[in-house]
């Protein structure tokens, strides 16, 4: 009564697409960051599902690395958002447009 790997793959593809849509459609930087996190977690799900189906330990280890990297990335991202909030008073991607051309 195990769930076939295809189902996991489909679920993670759907989650990944929701993340991509969030990045493209939402204007608040915090929401964009959350969408990126959703994309990364969808990827983790694929790794785990593939590793489980293949009996491969490497992919499980990869997920630990991936979680750590995502944490480091979001730490840097939030620091940037705080800095931009201090200088602009807003965190909308549309307002961040001093650089152009």
């Amino acid at each position: 009564m195990s769930v076939p790997p295809g189902h996991f793959m489909a679920l993670s593809a759907i989650l990944f697409s929701i993340g991509v849509l969030g990045v493209l459609l939402r204007r608040n930087v915090i929401i964009v960051l959350m969408s990126v996190e959703l994309m990364l977690n969808a990827v983790n799900l694929t790794w785990i599902a593939a590793g489980r189906a293949l009996g491969d330990i490497d992919s499980h280890i990869f997920v630990f690395f991936s979680l750590t990297v995502a944490a480091a990335e979001v730490a840097v991202g939030l620091a940037l958002v705080v800095a931009i909030y201090r200088s602009l008073g807003r965190t909308d991607v549309d307002d961040i447009s001093m650089l152009n051309g």
Binding site: F16, V43, W47, A53
Partner: peptide, 21 residues
């Protein structure tokens, strides 16, 4: 740089997970 970078790296990791599969 961060926003473009984190999106493309998520896409790259997604591609790698299929390569592993």
């Amino acid at each position: 740089y961060f926003l473009y970078g984190s999106i493309t790296s998520a896409a790259m990791l997604f591609g790698m997970s299929y390569l592993l599969g």
